[in-house]
Design a binder for these strands. Structure first.
Lengths: 341, 341
DNA sequence: CTGTTAGCGCATTCAA
DNA sequence: TTGAATGCGCTAACAG
């Protein structure tokens, strides 16, 4: 387990050079594919490097190059449902190349975030992805950072930053359009915390789709929490006050699960008597309900991949651009809106 | 955005030294809190460093020390439910100190894992935590790695490695003991994939607790999948064949959710007519069911923290030990086993 | 107490 | 085509 004595000592370029009978400089050139080295010499060097299992020390290398081949991912809440797919997408995109990801979880604490930011910068990461936990704008890290930054999920509140966030407006529209195309006209909306931009944007999208069809929401949209419990309670109120409702657009899959539950209590058959559509396409919930839940998927993994690609580009000197991009979402149709044949 | 020209250039120790009017060496000593430097000088250096927002270059530092202050976390399946708390625990424990975490997701692919392992080693991480997705033993990374390795969740199949894994046997025992202490005697077991060690261990623990009370499982334990759907189907079978069952120990919270669902269809009141206990304490599921779900919590965050602590120690030269440690789990009591007053 | 010197591992001039 | 020398930013000996 010791790592700096005996034959287990880390093998350096000079070991390779000696073993190949050349100078350090020549060995370096040979290994890095520079042109001005004789084929025979190069072969010998490569062979020696291989035999010694030589891997260049990235710190020595970085010290010269000024690049570390690492990026930081600064998340504000690892626990959250949305981080993981984004993180996967990013790690994926980077993993393909030669860069590795430093993960930092700020636990939603601004102090801790500053701390981690400093740590990342002092590690000389080549770029940073900031992943937020809501789609509400978040404070910018500032413009004077020495590395490119991309904001994912939570956009930055500074328009000079580059932000990628899912298009909740389109999601709301998509959901309602689907319900209408299923022949529903009496549509209610049950959503979560109204202070979330996500809740408002989805509602706005829904309104737009309804208006285009000459329809209106049944009752007022109902806001409270993103939980199954609230879905149950709200659905009971809706079904009591508006028995003629024929579809409910839910702000999350959790809420939708609660709605399904209550619908059963009320003797309403889904999707025949009542269509239900969720949001997030959280498969654990959506695929295990009775019936399975139609939902809107925000393509978060894709979002993470794109964020990674952007910092990649920025590192390579490509102009990174600015402003907030709303990435497309998609409809996933299951049994809660269309009966299986 | 450029990072090596103009006044935005990275500030180095020599900048600080010049600004403070001392030599580089003195500046270094002052900043690192070495004793042999005059208080006044130290103050000037610190002031200068602060004014210039100096942060030491970890690569230069690491080049000397032979340490990078980084560890790798090699997960086999980020998506999985169990990674996140472990990851959080680890990141937490490290974040407190000065080390940062490289995250690598092998996606359950051995090739990819090898690739990432190489990448981590070539980055000279000081240690590695391997996080698996099941509690079944997994192939060891081998004994000849230049850095300490700790296996979390999935133990290594080589007893010379150090592994930390939750004590599923104790979990099964705990669950059944709780049911018995609630006065239940006709207990059935519905679990997931029988090829999982977790399924077998929990069952074994359950058997032990039953035996000690002079009881037996009602019917054969039922195995299939870790899903809500299976929980529903299995519960229907159990309730049909053994109407006198008064408790069901479920292998996962998902299964338990399905069981609760079916219990309602059968007109069984939980917990009065039927007690239900889940496993994993996945709050999204457990806290949103009707009634809320009693469950076993594996303390995964704690497990992650301990894994981090171990590699920490190992890096510091403390003997890391070997073998597989089964970490304690805990019972979380909610309404599905004990009625609220 | 402070400054000078050396060297970590590597890539890159520039001479030979 | 090769190699000796230089320096990236920092710390650890030592000498002053």
């Amino acid at each position: 387990m010791s790592n700096n004595e005996g034959p287990g000592r880390t093998v350096t370029l000079s070991d390779v050079a000696r073993s190949a009978g050349v100078s350090i400089a020549t060995a370096s050139k040979a290994l890095n594919g520079r042109e001005d080295v004789a084929p025979a010499t190069r072969a010998r060097v490569l062979e020696a490097a291989d035999a010694l299992a030589f891997t260049p020390n990235p710190m020595a290398r970085g010290l010269l190059a000024g690049r570390t081949g690492t990026v930081g991912v600064l998340t504000s809440d690892l626990e959250g449902r949305f981080m993981i797919p984004i993180l996967m997408g990013a790690e994926d995109a980077f993993g393909a190349g030669q860069v590795n990801v430093f993960l930092c979880d700020a636990r939603g604490d601004a102090i801790r975030e500053q701390h981690h930011l400093k740590a990342l910068l002092s590690r000389r990461v080549d770029g940073i992805i900031v992943v937020g936990r809501q789609t509400d704008p978040r404070p910018s890290l500032g413009q004077d950072l020495p590395v490119p930054v991309v904001y994912a999920y939570s956009p930055s509140d500074d328009p000079r930053d580059l932000s990628l966030t899912p298009d909740n407006y389109a999601g709301g529209r998509l959901a309602v359009e689907h319900l209408i195309s299923c022949g529903r006209t009496r549509i209610a909306h049950i959503s979560g915390d109204p202070s979330y931009a996500a809740a408002q944007d989805r509602l706005a999208g829904a309104h737009a789709a309804l208006a285009r069809a000459g329809l209106e929401l049944v009752g007022e949209p109902m806001f409270s929490m993103w939980t199954e419990h609230w879905g149950r309670d709200a659905a009971a109120m809706v079904l009591q006050r508006h028995p003629d409702v024929d579809a409910i657009f839910c702000g999350s899959d959790q809420i939708a699960r609660g709605v399904l539950d209550t619908a059963r209590d009320f003797g309403r058959t889904v999707p025949d008597d009542l269509a239900v559509i969720g949001y997030d396409n959280w498969e654990v919930l959506a695929r295990n309900s009775r019936p399975e839940l139609t939902s809107i998927d925000a393509n978060l993994q894709q979002l993470g991949r794109q964020a990674a690609q952007r910092v990649f580009d920025a590192i390579d000197g490509v102009d990174i651009g600015e402003g907030t991009y709303h990435l497309p979402v998609r409809l996933v149709i299951r049994g809660s809106t269309i009966a299986r044949q």
